[in-house]
Design a protein around this nucleic acid. Structure first.
Lengths: 141, 141
DNA sequence: TTAAATTAAATTGTGCACAAGTTAATGTGG
DNA sequence: CCACATTAACTTGTGCACAATTTAATTTAA
């Protein structure tokens, strides 16, 4: 049981890092990191959103998001503004540059899939198994 | 393509963090982190090993390992010593406390599997798909 | 109405990851 | 033999993750 080869969790951990490093060269061209890319993707789907909403979708807390969002703000891809109706809430909006970045990012998923050298079928199979297990976690909590 | 739901990589990233947080309470009892646990597992299989050997098995470089190993040394679970035949190489050995920790860690995999609420079959399925894709990466590089 | 509880975000501190560069020891070709 | 390349580990700097605490705003309940 305590052998690395018999572990399931280590391959997941290794694959997760492998994926991030496959994304890196393509995201370097956009001057963002993988977690920043995830946040931008969430905002490209719906804009604006609160820190809480983004955190809920990505399973990240404000301890991770606050500094990350400040870095995206420093790159002028997003703006941060407290809501007047509830001063506790910070609303994140895309800047024009942030909206424009979506076009440049359009080719990233395809490039990554090519670089990972996997077929769409393998990816789908992987996703199905992973989400099945992830959903079990969510329903349990 | 740029929607979070259509992404394969995000579920992997999310599952990897989910796994680490499932391990956390059990590893807290041993006073080690998940990456530290991986290093200990590698050493329980073969002792001693060089920093390079450990790094090769876990896909981690010395920039990550050196400080991690120093923390394990501070906990007195391992010792670090330069080889006399080649002073560039640092050899990592388990201390008696490091060897003893294996017994305490024996139940961790089972406890984690229970806590994750998954069957052995699901885990095997997950592992098969993940390692298939991971191996493609390795052979490509 | 106001004291207590709750909530949202920020802050602080620790520990990975990893790129890039450094240091020191060992190998190698001329 | 010795300059040069290579190698192993270390160091430095940036950016996550995440636990724990703090701050400030809002909600609630007595």
């Amino acid at each position: 049981m305590l052998k690395l080869k018999s572990q399931v969790c280590f391959p997941i951990y290794a694959l997760s890092r492998e994926i991030t490093s496959t994304y890196r060269p393509f995201l370097d061209e956009l001057d963002i990191t993988y977690p920043q890319y995830l946040v931008m993707m969430v905002l490209w789907e719906e804009d604006p959103q609160t820190v809480n909403q983004i955190g809920h979708k990505l399973d990240l807390d404000s301890g991770t998001l606050t500094p990350l969002l400040k870095r995206l703000q420093a790159k002028e891809l997003i703006s941060r503004k407290r809501k007047s109706c509830d001063e506790r809430v910070v609303e994140i909006s895309l800047t024009p540059a942030g909206k424009n970045l979506e076009k440049a990012a359009e080719q990233v998923p395809l490039k990554v899939m090519e670089a990972m050298n996997v077929t769409a079928e393998e990816l789908q199979e992987l996703k199905d198994v992973v989400t099945k297990i992830l959903n079990k976690q969510r329903t349990r909590v």
